[in-house]
Nucleic acid binder design. Structure first.
Length: 791
DNA sequence: GAGTTTGAAACT
DNA sequence: CAGTTTCAAACTC
């Protein structure tokens, strides 16, 4: 899996034995400064005594974001009105789906519906889960950036659960610490340090934070007046090494107005009306909440129903003290296709009415009935960023196809989006892949059960952030299980394919076009892409790419097609008649939307979703496996080999041109193939080599004897594969008597005859030599057949 | 870039 | 299921 290594820090080695998908930078010295701890502790103490504020705070904003290191969020790329029918300009609309990307104590990330997640951090609705995650003694503060979009005035608010006041200087210090990821005394603020400690033990940890309370700068009323509030939450724990520590760096708002709000994250019961401080954007900048314009996420008011979202993370200074910085700058993501009425200027535009996206670290365990499923990949498996992974999620019917997106951060995380269908409807999942030592883990969480698709968003020029917003509000609390993807399953995944519907034969398609992948030039993959022998199960055109650099290849190929946003199509199609709604179209076949293609009359886009879905259903009716990988794995001679599931039917290309799907996938033809005159055989095949030698000998002799012009091709280029045979009986020697073999055998015999004649041998001796030669040829053929039979 | 070849997909 | 047609990619010039 390709990793976006834009993080300024080196990844921390991950433990192999853990299910942890991600290990976040941690260390004893990776802590908040004492000053910050003091500040935070005070804040936390006040948070304890507050409960409702946080809920209100959560509800006030219709768009909540907790931005953390490498979130991959997907937002509706077009027509937001279509997605969120109930999304009004009122940003306080709470009907919008909200999701939180969480990370459990072990570092496994997942995207979960906001509601349950919020409950976990909202003490007011005390539940067992919540208590488990946010104990009353837990010291956490939450920083919420809420851009007020609907109103005329735009504020940057810092609300604190407590009514007590926070000295301005301390508030500034805290804010700076949070936003910059670095404390005034040089310490680096790290994201949660995953430990094996269960979340509910967090309260037992002794924190040293001492935060002073702040004076509210904005009232809750102000918050409510701010419609279209964009909220970024930052949860800070008092102890960095705490298992449930959550430190999410808020994304600063732009002048459009945001609110930074401290809300309680504890379960304490305190009356509402938590004070909120409201400051202007300029004030915020002054205070250091917003560092600079180019590092600030801009959120612009929506001017229409449609909206796009570009989220840009706050640039975090890199400490020169060797400390680790968990939060790094990210480039924005862009919703695609971009609404025609909107232009994304630079990388800082966020159009409102977006739905809530909360990215936070979770304190949930990664196993158990109430947890999100974790897909554990074999240690020797490498995740192809563009590959579809077939996942069977317990508790759900059908197969989930998970596509790993190459937005991996320095910590080796990436997100996964999938959709599937069960009896209750489509289940969309979002997961995060991470690499722990040699093991990769994908945690999958269903997004909703509605019959709606996820939208895609393309990152802008740099950065790996994605926004994922489900179209439907209904959310099911996922059953969390651990799923292991065997190597064989991985191998059956097809790169270039997006998420597909599953068992139901029909279903939504969640498309995560590879061209939307992060394509930072300076980013070096951390999780190495598959090797040529691994899981380059590419289909059709995509398979021609070297599997070891699948993404890069595609990128390099379409560099000229890169738009201003750096979004490159994986491989533009040129369909003219199929409307890109048939499998002729590679984009469609790969489950992707056409983007920057050269197709005519294209309907493979969001604007024709209905038509597209119909086409998908049609394809699935014809062939339920239509969207499944064509390249699978077969076990032969004790080892897994890749092979075309269906086999090719080449007749004239000799399976040595890219017309042949096997050849294109760089795999030898197999028994599944019905090709004629196949020469796409495995090189080390001894049987083929024997025949090759036979042909070689024939050619050499023919040449030596100058017997006309041999049609035999150079021996080095000749390999034979017996005619297609799907059963063992077909491996009989006579099946090897192809025309060419016969021809070459005759050449050998003729050469022998010529030689005998040349040597002036008598007829008897000549016959003897010829017969002996014939015997050798037959023996070669038989041996080849017997050897091939064992393969 | 236009025309040809090729084989998968779609159709009958 | 087999034969034919359609289609778009691969290939050639």
């Amino acid at each position: 899996m390709e990793v976006d290594n834009s993080s300024p820090t080196e990844p921390v080695p991950m433990s192999d034995d853990s299910v942890n998908a991600l290990v976040i930078d941690q260390g004893s010295n990776d802590q908040l400064g004492s000053h910050d701890y003091e500040t935070l502790a005070n804040i936390e103490a006040e948070i304890k005594s507050m409960n409702a504020e946080q809920q209100v705070g959560a509800q006030e904003s219709s768009l909540q974001m907790e931005v953390e290191e490498t979130p991959e969020t997907i937002v509706p790329d077009v027509d937001m009105s279509e997605i969120a029918g109930n999304t009004s300009m009122e940003m306080s609309n709470d009907n919008q789906p909200k999701f939180i990307i969480t990370a459990d104590p072990t570092g496994t990330f997942s995207l979960v519906p906001e509601k349950p997640a919020l409950q976990k951090i909202a003490p007011a609705t005390t539940t067992s889960t919540m208590q488990n995650i946010a104990p009353a003694t837990q010291r956490q503060a939450m920083l919420i950036v809420q851009p007020s979009v609907g109103g005329q005035q735009h504020f940057l608010k810092i609300s604190h659960p407590s009514s007590a006041s926070i000295p301005k200087d301390q508030l500034q210090t805290l804010a700076q610490t949070i936003m910059s990821g670095q404390t005034p005394d040089g310490n680096v603020v790290l994201r949660a340090a995953p430990t094996t400690k269960p979340p509910n033990l967090a309260a037992k940890t002794t924190g040293t934070n001492a935060a002073k309370s702040t004076q509210p700068i904005a009232s809750k009323k102000n918050l409510q007046q701010n419609k279209n509030v964009f909220t970024t939450k930052m949860i800070i724990s008092n102890t960095p090494a705490q298992s449930n520590q959550q430190l999410l760096i808020a994304t600063p708002a732009e002048a459009a107005g945001q609110t930074i709000k401290f809300v309680s994250n504890t379960a304490s019961n305190v009356s509402m009306g938590s004070p909120t401080k409201t400051i202007t954007f300029a004030q915020a900048q002054q205070m250091g909440l917003i560092q600079s314009s180019n590092k600030v996420q801009h959120i612009l008011p929506s001017s229409g129903q449609k909206q796009a979202m570009v989220v840009n993370k706050v640039s975090q200074p890199i400490t020169s003290q060797g400390s680790k910085v968990a939060v790094v700058s990210r480039s924005p993501a862009k919703i695609l296709p971009a609404p025609p009425t909107k232009t994304v200027a630079g990388n800082k535009i966020i159009q409102p009415n977006a739905q809530k996206v909360i990215i936070r670290q979770s304190t949930m365990k990664n196993t158990g009935a109430n947890n999100n499923p974790i897909i554990r990949l074999p240690a020797n498996q490498t995740i192809n960023p563009n590959q579809i992974h077939q996942v069977q999620i317990p508790g759900r019917q059908g197969v989930q196809y998970v596509r790993l997106v190459s937005t991996t951060s320095a910590t080796g995380t990436g997100n996964v989006v999938s959709t599937g269908k069960n009896k209750t409807g489509t289940i969309q999942t979002v997961g995060v892949t991470q690499k722990v030592g040699t093991q990769q883990v994908v945690k999958v969480v269903p997004l909703n059960t509605g019959n709606q698709t996820l939208r895609t968003v393309a990152p802008k020029t740099t950065g790996t952030q994605r926004i994922l917003i489900p179209a439907a509000t209904p959310v099911v609390q996922p059953k969390t299980n651990t799923i292991t993807i065997p190597a064989s399953a991985l191998s059956q995944l097809t790169s270039g394919q997006a998420v597909l519907s599953t068992a139901g034969n029909v279903g939504n398609i969640v498309v995560l076009p590879p061209q939307y992948l992060q394509q930072t030039e300076d980013v070096k993959p951390k999780l190495q892409p598959v090797t040529s022998t691994a899981v380059n199960n590419s289909q059709s055109s995509s398979s021609t790419m070297a599997s070891s650099s699948f993404t890069e290849s595609r990128q390099s190929r379409s560099t000229s097609n890169a738009d201003t946003n750096g979004i490159r199509p994986r491989k533009p199609c040129n369909c003219t008649k199929s409307q890109c709604l048939k499998l002729y179209c590679d984009c469609f076949a790969n489950g992707e939307f056409c983007h920057m293609c050269n197709c005519n009359n294209c309907s493979n886009n969001l604007g024709n979703e209905e038509e597209r879905h119909r086409a998908i259903r049609s394809c699935l009716e014809r062939n339920p496996n239509a969207f499944r990988p064509k390249i699978g794995k077969a076990r032969e001679t004790g080892e897994d080999i890749r092979r075309h599931n269906k086999g090719c039917n080449c007749k004239r290309s000799g399976c040595l041109k890219n017309y042949c799907e096997c050849y294109e996938a760089k795999i030898p033809c197999s028994n599944n193939c019905k090709c004629i005159g196949c020469r796409n055989v495995e090189e080390p095949d001894l049987s083929k080599k024997s025949l090759n030698d036979l042909a070689d000998a024939a050619e050499v002799r023919t040449a030596q004897l100058s017997i006309g012009k041999s049609k035999i091709q150079p021996s080095s280029d000749i390999t034979f594969r017996p005619p297609a045979a799907s059963n063992a009986g077909a491996r009989q020697p006579f099946n090897f008597l192809t025309d060419k073999v016969v021809e070459m055998t005759c050449q050998c015999l003729m050469a022998q005859a010529e030689e005998a004649e040349k040597n002036m041998l008598n007829e008897e001796m000549s016959e003897k030599l010829i017969i002996e030669e014939f015997g050798r040829c037959l023996k070669e053929i038989i041996d080849s057949a017997s050897r091939a039979d064992t393969v």
